[in-house]
Simulated assay, not measured.
Amino acid sequence: MSTPSFEPQAFERADTETLPEGTRIAMALEYQGGAYRGWQSQDKPKVATIQDALESALSSVAASPVTVICAGRTDAGVHASHQVVHFDAPVGRSVKAWHAGCNALLPADIAVRWVCPVAGDFHARFSATARRYRYVILNQLRRSAHLVGGVTHIDVPLDEALMHREAQVLVGEQDFSAFRAASCQSHSPMRNIHYVNVSRHGRYVVIDIQGNAFLHHMVRNIAGVLVAVGSGAQPVGWTAEVLASRDRSQGGVTAKPHGLYLVDVNYPSEFDLPQLSPGPEFIRSFGAEFAADRP
């Protein structure tokens, strides 16, 4: 029987040295977003958010209020396999205490992947140089009860090679007005997409996209356009037409949130953050490219 292999940092660090009060702490999370109204805390009572759940757990570990800042705010129903946050420790605690204590207090659908003390100038949002998302589509006739909420089900055949070719017009720094939500509050529609890869793995089609940052609903709107072309509902070249229009009304339907995962956030090497393979967990068996840190 072969010995199972594990990620080199898949287990919590056994660092029990107490870090001083005021230490800036970086933390990576994974979560299922289905039960939450997105990442950000809301003024409405009894609205569950990822931020509230995490801050509650951290505040219990610290016996003092803790506020976190994240790399990218995910929408309601959207998941993450590598969301990065930071906070300034209000009390002295060890890495192990923050990691194990937080995991013991978080709901089952939120987990801490790693904890790391960082320099005081580290900022989860502003220090990030890139964000990476994967949109996972279950492309078969019947839906799956086991995968509900974790993938987007599309029951018509998709031409993933065509979708990949269509997506290449999105690469580079461009005006993505046609792919931003009407409620988007960003001051500029300009974003730089580093790459978009669309590939099939049996019954799954995966859209893998990285950019410096993303507008509100931008990845879901891109997915919606690519699916429309890949299914034959729109003609070849429609992605370029939508992009050139700079008009959101030309962009078709926003894809559902269920298949969307924030899978990685890049930072300058000087911060020396742990590197784990991107997720989500269940697609790592698709091949080596899905287990790698970078494509």
Rank of each mutant, 00 (worst) to 15 (best):
K46V: 09
T74S: 02
P45A: 12
S285R: 09
F11L: 10
R93D: 06
D159Q: 11
F87V: 07
V148D: 14
Q210G: 01
D175L: 05
R165T: 15
L141G: 12
A14S: 12
I222L: 15
I154C: 09
G232F: 04
H217D: 15
P280M: 02
P90A: 08
A53I: 08
P8N: 03
P295T: 02
I110N: 03
N192D: 15
E270A: 12
D155A: 15
G202K: 08
W39T: 07
R13S: 11
N197I: 14
R191D: 15
D175Q: 02
S245F: 11
D208L: 09
E166M: 06
R125S: 07
Q51W: 10
G202L: 07
S59Q: 03
V171N: 07
S144V: 02
A223G: 09
S269T: 06
Q40S: 11
A291N: 00
A71E: 04
G230R: 12
L215G: 05
E241G: 02
E21D: 10
S81G: 04
R200S: 08
G22H: 04
R284K: 13
G101K: 08
S2Q: 03
I207Y: 13
V205D: 00
V169I: 11
E12C: 14
V171P: 07
E12V: 15
A182L: 05
Q234N: 04
Y267G: 09
N139S: 05
G279C: 03
R132S: 06
V136P: 04
G251I: 08
V91N: 01
R165C: 15
H82Q: 14
R93C: 10
W238E: 12
N139H: 00
R113H: 01
N192K: 10
Q9T: 12
E12D: 11
F122C: 05
L158K: 02
D293Q: 14
T239V: 10
W114E: 01
A111R: 10
Y204G: 00
N197S: 11
M218Y: 01
D15F: 07
Q32W: 11
P257S: 09
R200P: 00
